[in-house]
């Protein structure tokens, strides 16, 4: 975003229908085509993996990605809960409808039009009735400077999301406590989250903020280090420890359990050290658009 744009105080109008159309496209793109960052990470893992079986399965995943893209079949039958991040420039005005409804309509149409699986159930602790259109999407909004609207979607399957972990450590447990907690989470998750994983880690803030940081860290390009060298060092140490676990591709044993570790940190209360782990499977479906 250029400085010139940021300095304008003029309100920019965005039509709600533009948001819906962008979401429809993102749902399709995310579910049929793995991003270049994810493909490159899987290729690198295949080159480095010591297990012959692991290398073969990583090859299957690359073949699956090529086929899904070519034949317009979902990369995975679990097309996920649709997590939508909206970064809304403070000079944006949404016209012609309600923003959240526009997002939900995009998910509804995106999942219906392209034969994606609808996986959301209402009454989750009792009747579990499928809402039939994959709504509601989980929407996170953030107000940022500027006059653009950035939309990022991530399709999150149950296999990986079910392995999320959270704890508030004692401040005395420090860096080592954080590393051990994350490594244990990946170890215990084993094959279930479909490794090789992208490991999202949120440190600090409050309970809900730590988990949001962990989830948001996943939408960085795979393997891009945190800009803070101290956090980047932590990511590297966790990655080495996780890959020494031996879990491997699909949990069948191997030298690569994670493609990358992404961590985000922020200040916390003097009495707290929150740490959250949100895992993403190898089929890391994340896409973004800017309106």
């Amino acid at each position: 975003m250029s400085n010139e744009v940021v300095q304008q105080s003029k309100i920019r109008e965005i039509q709600a229908i533009q948001v819906t159309q962008a979401i429809i496209h993102l749902c399709q793109q995310a579910n049929f085509s793995l991003g270049k960052d994810v493909l490159a990470a899987i290729q690198k893992a295949q080159a480095e993996e010591k297990s012959p079986l692991g290398r073969d399965i990583l090859g299957q995943l690359l073949e699956n990605a090529a086929l899904a893209d070519r034949e317009q079949l979902p990369l995975c039958q679990d097309c996920g809960v649709t997590v939508v991040f909206l970064e809304i420039g403070q000079n944006v005005h949404i016209n012609g409808g309600d923003l959240h409804s526009a997002v939900q309509e995009g998910v509804r149409q995106g999942y219906a039009k392209t034969y994606l699986r609808k996986s959301m159930v209402a009454k989750p602790f009792s009747d579990r009735i499928n809402t039939t259109d994959n709504t509601p999407a989980i929407i996170h909004t953030e107000i940022v400077p500027g006059d653009r609207l950035k939309i990022t979607i991530m399709c999150k399957g149950a296999g990986s999301e079910n392995m999320s972990r959270f704890a508030i450590l004692k401040p005395s447990e420090g860096r080592q406590g954080v590393v051990d907690f994350v490594v244990k989470a990946v170890d215990e998750a084993g094959a279930n989250p479909c490794p090789p994983l992208v490991v999202g880690v949120g440190i600090g803030g409050t309970a809900e903020m730590a988990m949001l940081l962990a989830k948001k860290s996943l939408i960085r390009p795979v393997g891009s280090p945190n800009l803070d060298p101290e956090v980047a060092g932590l990511e590297q140490e966790i990655l080495e420890r996780v890959n020494a676990l031996g879990v491997g591709t699909q949990g069948l044993g191997g030298s690569i359990t994670a493609l990358a570790v992404h961590a985000e940190a922020m200040p916390a209360h003097i009495g707290s050290l929150p740490v959250a782990v949100n895992l993403q499977c190898h089929s890391h479906r994340h896409r973004e658009a800017i309106i």
């Binding site: 094959a191 420890r241 020494a244 031996g246 491997g248």
Partner: peptide
């Protein structure tokens, strides 16, 4: 159990 066998083969020190 393939998971136990696989992990035992590739697990490295410290963990």
């Amino acid at each position: 159990d393939v998971f136990e066998q696989g992990r035992a083969e590739y697990r490295r020190g410290g963990n």
